[in-house]
Design a protein around this nucleic acid. Structure first.
Lengths: 188, 188
DNA sequence: ACCTGAACACCGTTCAAGT
DNA sequence: ACCTGAACACCGTTCAAGT
């Protein structure tokens, strides 16, 4: 594995273990076994390293969604499966999730990162389209409906990852919120 | 105005102007006109100062929601009005919004901050309840339905604040997403 | 092409004093 | 009770060298 790949991997591990603040270039470099400024040979700055983590995970999510779409369950079930995956990802890797979906520095990155993010969303929209074709979801324009479900799932997961899922808010778990949305949208 | 109040105000202004990274205790202290470590006489650490900003704004949001509930428009219209306020707040003060609704350090704060956040949500749930009573929204348990709408609005605003509202995602504006949700939930 | 050590300008936080 | 100046242990980033 190249030094560049090693840097991304170790940075992701530090992110999982200690959150955004733990991902210092010095700690990443030390984990890889190079000097504290060797990362600058591979990334423009700290933000570029974070963007590389995000891009890698967006590609993974896109693959997961595309794989789910090929399953032989009912389309609406496949959509629920994908949403379950998404929620699980947010629960298992909250800091990573927030990097991909909430970090302002990452959202403005553009380029290949934005392309990867768009690819993940497009795969997700495909799942929504399939569910619409069986009448399990309303015939709203697919892009708008997929965007709404995507944003709702994101809102639920983000509140969960931020520790804001109090029982008092009627949101004991993100899964419950997504299930309620699909139920109200007409999927039984 | 007390030094403590001044510190909160200047910190909020720096947050609006330059984002989270611009809120250094040194910059805040300098803006108020005290030495770089005077803030420690009023706040335990940097996070406590940020929490004070968040608490102040949660109280403001609660008041705004409570005020909206007293209007004389149709209940569903009052709910839309409150959601419009919420979205506008997120658009005008994205960094502040992210502090209140996405920052992990703030979500785990507990105490009076959590009480203020809960009060804002409770006021919001009251608006949902009123809309349900006229049949404009389904008779789902209010807490769950309010939580779902809250999470959806949050997801839309957060994606917007993070620069992830691309036309390709079918989400040209948070308002549009919320309107679609209410439409699909049966509010015309 | 890739890496290193020294250096700079920042931080948050603590501490011993001052009034 | 509130504030200050000095100091410590960190950061990201740059630069002049080294192989």
């Amino acid at each position: 594995m190249s030094t560049r790949e090693n840097l991304i991997t170790q940075a992701a591990l530090l992110l999982d273990k200690g959150g955004d603040a733990a991902v210092t270039l010095r700690a990443v470099a030390h984990a890889v076994g190079v000097s504290h400024n060797a990362p600058y040979r591979h990334f423009k700055d700290r933000n570029a390293l974070l963007a590389a983590i995000a891009e890698r995970d967006f590609r993974m999510l896109a693959l997961a969604f595309e794989g789910t779409r090929l399953g032989d369950a009912e389309p609406i079930q496949r959509l629920k499966e994908a949403l379950g995956l998404f929620i699980q990802y947010g629960r298992d890797y909250p800091a990573r999730y927030r990097l991909l979906f909430s970090d302002p520095g990452i959202g403005a990155a553009g380029g290949s990162l934005e392309a990867a993010a768009l690819k993940a969303f497009t795969a997700f929209a495909g799942l929504v389209e399939d569910a619409q074709s069986t009448g399990a979801l309303p015939p709203t324009p697919t892009r708008e409906l997929a965007g709404l479900i995507y944003a709702t799932a994101h809102g639920l997961v983000d509140l969960q990852a931020g520790g804001r899922m109090r029982e008092q808010k009627g949101l004991s778990a993100a899964e419950q919120g997504v299930a309620l949305l699909l139920l109200l949208l007409g999927a039984s």
